[in-house]
Amino acid sequence: MRSVSSFPPIVGPLLGVANVVVMAVAVVGLTVVPSSGEPVPSPQAALAAPPTEKPPQDPSAPAGTPSQAPSPSSTAGQPPGVAATPEFARQVKANEAGLVPVLMYHRIIAKRHASIDRTPKQLRQELETLAKRGYVPITAAEFATGDIRVPAGRFPVVLTFDDGHESHFRLDASGNPVPDTAAGVILDVARRYPSFRPTATFWVNREPFGLRDEAAQAAAVRWLVGHGFEVANHTWSHPNLGVLSKKKVQKQIGKVQRMLEKLGAGTPRTLALPFGVAPHPRELARTGKWDGTRYDFTGVFLAGAEPSRSPYAKNFPRGAIQRIQSNGKKGECRKWCSQYWLEWLDKHPGERYVSDGDPGRISIPSRLRGNIGAKWNDRVNAY
C-alpha cells in the first residue's frame, strides 16, 4: 500500500500537464472577466453515522453531538480540544498525514461567462455536499501553519476565492452579506449545517471586492476578519510574476500587504500566485521587502490541480501548495477539478486527512510515522 506522502497514482506523470491546463484556463477566464478542560467525547460519538434528518438538526453532525450556531469569532464553529490517545485515534480512524482538498473559486455569478465561474447555486450545492460528507472549513493560514481544529473523525477543507471580486462579498442596507455572494452562501450553509464552520480565505488585489473607496474597503475587510474569515494577498494587479524583475515582484506583493494592514486585515500570512506562476527566484514569493514593508508568508498557493499534502508532512511544499479548481467532471476537469477529487477521496478514504479532534497531537497510523516532518515529532500520536 502506497503512503499518503506520495501523489495518488493518477497524478504523478500528468502533474505538469495539469498545472499548465489550470494556468491556461485561468488566463482565458480572466480575459472575459469584467473587471482544553472540556470533556473528552467518546469514540462512539465521534464515529456515529451522520443522521439523515433535515435542518434544523445538522445532518452532518455525529449522532449525539449538539449543534452549535456559528459565532463571529476567529474560531467560529471550532470544537473544544480533546485529548486523543492512540486507542481513540484508532477508533476514529485518524490520519493527519492525509490529503486535504484546497478548493479554488473565482467569480460567483448567476450566468457563467468563463469555465472557472460558478453560480451561487453551484457553490451552494458543493458546500452542502462537503457538509454532508463531514468536511469542516479552515482558512488557508490555519492550514499552512498546521493549526487544524476539526472535530474527531472529520476532514478539513480550505475554501479559497481569488481576485476579490464583488460577487465574493457585499453588504446589504442592513449590514449583512448579500445572500448570493460567496460569503452569503457560506453563512447560509453554515446556518443549516451547524458543524460546517463558516470560514474561507479571500485573496484580493488592489480593489478588494470591487470597492474603490478606502472606507468601504476597510468596512468590508474588517467585517470579514471580525467574522472569522481570512483576507490575504493576491498581488496588486494580478500579473504573471514569472516575467517580472525582482523589484517589481516585491512591489506587487508589498503594496497589497501594506494596503491590507491599513484596512484592518492584520498582517496577511498567505499568498495566492496569479495564474499559479512563481517568480524567479521562487523564494521571492515567500519573503521579501518593498518600500519598508516586509512580507513573510507561511504558505504560498498554486492554481491547481490536486489535493494538498498534510502540513505535517516532511515534504510539505509550503511555497507551492496545491489547490483544486471548483468544477464538474467535463473537459479538462474530468480528472483535475473538485467533483473528480472529492469522489476520489471518498473512494480512497485511507488517503484522506482525518482529524483526531486534538489540535495538540498529530495522530497517524504507525506505518506513516516516517512521513511526518522532524519539527512535529514531539506531537506525533501513532497507533
Rank of each mutant, 00 (worst) to 15 (best):
Pro281Ala: 05
Ala215Trp: 08
Gly210Ala: 12
Ala216Gln: 15
Thr270Val: 10
Gly210Cys: 06
Arg222Lys: 15
Gly264Arg: 04
Thr270Trp: 01
Glu230Leu: 12
His234Arg: 05
Thr270Leu: 08
Ser245Leu: 09
His227Arg: 12
Arg269Gly: 09
Ala265His: 01
Pro268Ile: 07
Leu244Pro: 04
Arg197His: 13
His227Gly: 07
Lys262Arg: 15
Thr199Trp: 03
Leu244Asn: 05
Trp203Thr: 14
Ala265Met: 07
Lys289Thr: 15
Glu261Asp: 09
Pro208Tyr: 00
Gly226Asp: 11
Pro239Met: 10
Val231Lys: 04
Leu263Phe: 06
Gly288Leu: 08
Thr267Leu: 10
Gly228Pro: 03
Glu230Phe: 03
Val277Ile: 15
Lys262Gln: 14
Asn205Gly: 12
Pro281Asp: 00
Ala216Glu: 14
Trp223Asn: 03
Ala218Phe: 01
Lys255Tyr: 07
Lys248Met: 09
Lys255Phe: 02
Leu241Trp: 00
Leu273Gln: 08
Arg222Phe: 04
Thr267Trp: 09
His238Leu: 11
Lys262Ile: 06
Lys262Pro: 05
Trp236Asn: 12
Thr201Arg: 07
Asp213Cys: 08
Leu244Arg: 11
Leu284Trp: 02
Pro239Thr: 11
Asn233Pro: 05
Leu241Gly: 05
Gly292Asn: 10
Arg212Tyr: 13
Phe275Glu: 03
Met259Glu: 13
Gly266Asp: 10
Arg286Pro: 00
Glu283Phe: 07
Ala218Glu: 06
Trp290Thr: 00
Ala219Gln: 15
Arg258Ile: 04
His227Lys: 07
Ala218Val: 06
Thr270Met: 05
Thr199Tyr: 02
Val231Ile: 12
Gly228Trp: 01
Glu261Tyr: 05
Lys289Pro: 01
Gly288Phe: 02
Lys289Arg: 15
Ala200Trp: 06
Glu261Pro: 01
Leu260Asn: 01
Leu263Cys: 10
Asn205Tyr: 01
Val256His: 02
Lys247Gln: 13
Gly288Val: 11
Glu207Gly: 03
Pro279Phe: 03
Asn233Phe: 01
Leu260Cys: 06
Ala218His: 04
Gln217Met: 13
Gly210Ile: 07
Arg269Gln: 15
Ala278Asn: 03
Ser245Glu: 05
Trp236Thr: 13
Leu260Ala: 08
Met259Ala: 14
Lys289Tyr: 13
Arg258Asn: 11
Glu207Met: 12
Gln217Trp: 01
Pro281Cys: 08
Trp236Leu: 14
Leu260Ile: 08
Pro239Ile: 11
Lys289Val: 15
Pro274Arg: 04
Gly242Leu: 02
Thr199Asp: 08
Gly254Lys: 05
Gly210Asp: 02
Asp213Gly: 13
Asp291Arg: 13
Gly276Ile: 07
Arg206Ala: 14
Phe229Tyr: 14
Trp203Ser: 14
Gly254Gln: 06
Lys255Met: 13
Gly266Met: 12
Leu271Trp: 03
Gly210Arg: 10
Gly264Ala: 12
Val231Phe: 00
Ala200Val: 06
Leu244Met: 14
Val204Leu: 06
Leu241Tyr: 02
Pro268Tyr: 02
Gln217His: 08
